[in-house]
Amino acid sequence: MTNLEDWVDGVESWGFRVVDYDEDTMYFEGIERDEDTMVTYRIAPGVFVAYINIKSRYHSENAVHSGRRGYRIAYCLNGNYYTHINDSKVLITSSEVFVGRAIPESKASYGTQEGIVAFNMMVAPDEIEGRTFLADLSREFVDVVKEIKDIGFTVKRKDALDEARGLIEALAKADRAGIGLMAFRLLATISKEQVSANRKRYFQETEDEFVAEMEQYLRENLKEPITLEQMEETFGCSKSTIINKFIHTCQYTPMKYLANLRMMEAERQLIDTNASMTYIAESVGYDNPSNFSRAFKQFTGLSPSAYRKCFGQSKNDK
């Protein structure tokens, strides 16, 4: 028996089953589609990396299993997905690295489109052993993140994004040495991250009334030039109240969340339709296609035309 098997009990609630394992690696496949896979590597005592490769449109509800509690670093190279940390809804994307709590249950997790390539790195403080360099680095990371609340924080530094992409590349090749190297480089980078006092203020617990309505309002008005002033008038709350409530529940300010929704809708249209770039830009609130293209590349790392070429209908039909 290996403590990797702590991942097994109840993992079916996430939509996976174990198909094989060795001392430091556990292999999963999707219950509904065996082409959906996950591989979990133990790269050091208390440090684990799960490589997630889901071809389908992922969705799970009320997932609970006996996995570890601790802290996580998460990144999504292809696609985007939401998950919950208790009542906080967090988005994992390609434009930033998410850092937050790791808990073995979630009331809902789902992809925003078909196809997710991502990783979850988890650090379990109680399992870190010894006084080695890697153990000390793991403890340093825990010390940096131990005060965060459920909503976590995101890192957009170029070095962190490069290391996250490098880790995905090593995971895709099943390169164990590369996985360990890139994982600990990313841990070291995150450990140097300074979370601003203003951001920490948003970690404080607040009531989340109206947030679901605000989120729905944003989703239904992607084309409109929404402002905080409009939301203030619509929902009868001050701008500062709206921002605080929204960040606590949905990770971002309303305007940043709206920008993410627009980019994810653009991704969907580029994959599922043959609509023109001008039409897609206008449908997600951009009058200027050049501004849309610039924002899209910043979000995904690819221009809209390159994204359609990689993931669009013609690619999927081959």
Results as ranks from 00 to 15, higher is better:
Met1Trp: 08
Trp14Glu: 10
Gly15Pro: 08
Val19Thr: 13
Glu23Trp: 10
Tyr27Lys: 04
Glu32Asn: 09
Asp34Tyr: 09
Val39Leu: 04
Thr40Trp: 06
Tyr41Cys: 08
Arg42Pro: 07
Arg42Thr: 05
Val47Leu: 12
Ile54Cys: 07
His59Pro: 12
Ser66Trp: 01
Arg68Lys: 14
Ile73His: 05
Ala74Gln: 11
Ile85Thr: 14
Ile92Lys: 09
Tyr110Ala: 11
Thr112Asp: 07
Met121Phe: 00
Pro125Thr: 02
Asp126Phe: 03
Phe133Thr: 14
Ala135Ser: 05
Asp136Ala: 14
Glu140Leu: 12
Phe141Ile: 03
Lys146Glu: 08
Gly152Leu: 08
Phe153Ser: 08
Lys156Gln: 11
Leu161Asn: 00
Asp162Cys: 03
Leu171Asp: 02
Arg176Lys: 12
Ala177Asn: 12
Leu187Gln: 00
Ile190Leu: 06
Lys192Trp: 02
Val195Ile: 09
Ala197Val: 12
Lys200Asp: 03
Gln204Pro: 02
Glu205Trp: 08
Glu209Cys: 02
Phe210Gly: 03
Glu213His: 06
Gln216Gly: 13
Glu224Ser: 14
Glu229Cys: 07
Glu232Phe: 07
Ser238Asn: 05
Lys239Tyr: 04
Ser240Gly: 14
Ile247Met: 14
His248Tyr: 15
His248Lys: 15
Thr253Ala: 12
Leu261Phe: 01
Leu261Gly: 12
Arg262His: 07
Met263Gly: 03
Glu265Ile: 10
Ala266Lys: 02
Ser276Thr: 07
Ser276Gly: 02
Asn288Tyr: 15
Pro289Thr: 05
Ser290Cys: 10
Leu302Ile: 06
Pro304Glu: 01
Cys310Ser: 11
Lys315Asp: 06
